[in-house]
Deep mutational scan, measured.
Amino acid sequence: ATNIVSKVKWYNSTKNFGFIEQDNGGKDVFVHKSAVDAAGLHSLEEGQDVIFDLEEKQGKAYAVNLRIK
C-alpha cells in the first residue's frame, strides 16, 4: 500500500524505532530510524501526522518512504 496517512503512536529515538497507528484499525506499523533518516528527520513525535508506504518483509509490516503530512 502507498501514501497511507496516519499518526505516530510512539517513537523512541534512543532505541531507534517506533510504531505508527493504522487508521483502518489494522496492526501498528513498525518504523525504523533508517526510514526517519531517509525522510531527513531527526525523530518523530507522538501524534505526528505522517504519510508512508507499507512494505512487508518476512511477514512484518514496515513503514518506508516516510514523510510529514
Rank of each mutant, 00 (worst) to 15 (best):
residue 2 T to Y: 13
residue 66 L to I: 13
residue 61 A to Q: 14
residue 14 T to P: 05
residue 15 K to I: 12
residue 20 I to T: 00
residue 54 L to F: 07
residue 36 V to I: 11
residue 28 D to A: 05
residue 21 E to F: 15
residue 44 L to N: 01
residue 65 N to Q: 04
residue 57 K to W: 12
residue 48 Q to A: 09
residue 45 E to C: 14
residue 35 A to Q: 11
residue 10 W to G: 01
residue 52 F to V: 04
residue 18 G to M: 01
residue 38 A to E: 09
residue 53 D to H: 03
residue 31 V to G: 02
residue 61 A to Y: 14
residue 21 E to D: 08
residue 47 G to Y: 05
residue 37 D to Q: 14
residue 13 S to R: 13
residue 48 Q to E: 09
residue 29 V to P: 01
residue 22 Q to S: 15
residue 43 S to A: 12
residue 15 K to Y: 11
residue 16 N to V: 03
residue 12 N to V: 06
residue 66 L to W: 00
residue 5 V to L: 11
residue 50 V to F: 03
residue 46 E to N: 13
residue 55 E to D: 08
residue 16 N to Q: 13
residue 63 A to M: 01
residue 29 V to E: 00
residue 5 V to P: 09
residue 17 F to R: 00
residue 23 D to E: 13
residue 47 G to T: 03
residue 4 I to W: 06
residue 17 F to V: 03
residue 40 G to T: 04
residue 56 E to M: 14
residue 22 Q to P: 13
residue 46 E to H: 13
residue 25 G to Q: 09
residue 65 N to R: 09
residue 52 F to W: 09
residue 50 V to S: 01
residue 29 V to T: 06
residue 54 L to H: 04
residue 8 V to D: 00
residue 57 K to T: 10
residue 43 S to P: 07
residue 44 L to S: 00
residue 63 A to C: 04
residue 37 D to V: 15
residue 6 S to C: 08
residue 8 V to I: 09
residue 24 N to H: 12
residue 6 S to R: 06
residue 45 E to L: 13
residue 57 K to N: 11
residue 39 A to I: 08
residue 32 H to Q: 03
residue 68 I to P: 09
residue 11 Y to W: 10
residue 1 A to L: 13
residue 36 V to K: 02
residue 10 W to T: 02
residue 39 A to P: 00
residue 60 K to T: 07
residue 55 E to K: 11
residue 51 I to Y: 07
residue 60 K to I: 08
residue 51 I to D: 04
residue 43 S to I: 11
residue 37 D to S: 13
residue 31 V to S: 00
residue 14 T to F: 13
residue 24 N to W: 11
residue 17 F to H: 05
residue 17 F to W: 08
residue 62 Y to A: 06
residue 10 W to K: 03
residue 31 V to A: 01
residue 65 N to Y: 04
residue 68 I to K: 07
residue 67 R to N: 05
residue 7 K to V: 08
residue 38 A to I: 09
residue 45 E to T: 13
residue 55 E to C: 14
residue 22 Q to V: 12
residue 48 Q to G: 05
residue 23 D to P: 15
residue 58 Q to D: 15
residue 40 G to D: 06
residue 33 K to M: 06
residue 5 V to G: 09
residue 7 K to I: 08
residue 42 H to K: 13
residue 17 F to L: 02
residue 30 F to I: 04
residue 28 D to Q: 07
residue 48 Q to C: 09
residue 26 G to W: 09
residue 5 V to D: 06
residue 28 D to P: 07
residue 16 N to M: 11
residue 29 V to C: 05
residue 59 G to V: 02
residue 68 I to T: 11
residue 53 D to A: 03
residue 9 K to C: 05
residue 26 G to N: 10
residue 50 V to D: 00
residue 29 V to R: 03
residue 59 G to Y: 05
residue 15 K to W: 12
residue 18 G to C: 04
residue 12 N to G: 05
residue 67 R to P: 03
residue 1 A to Y: 13
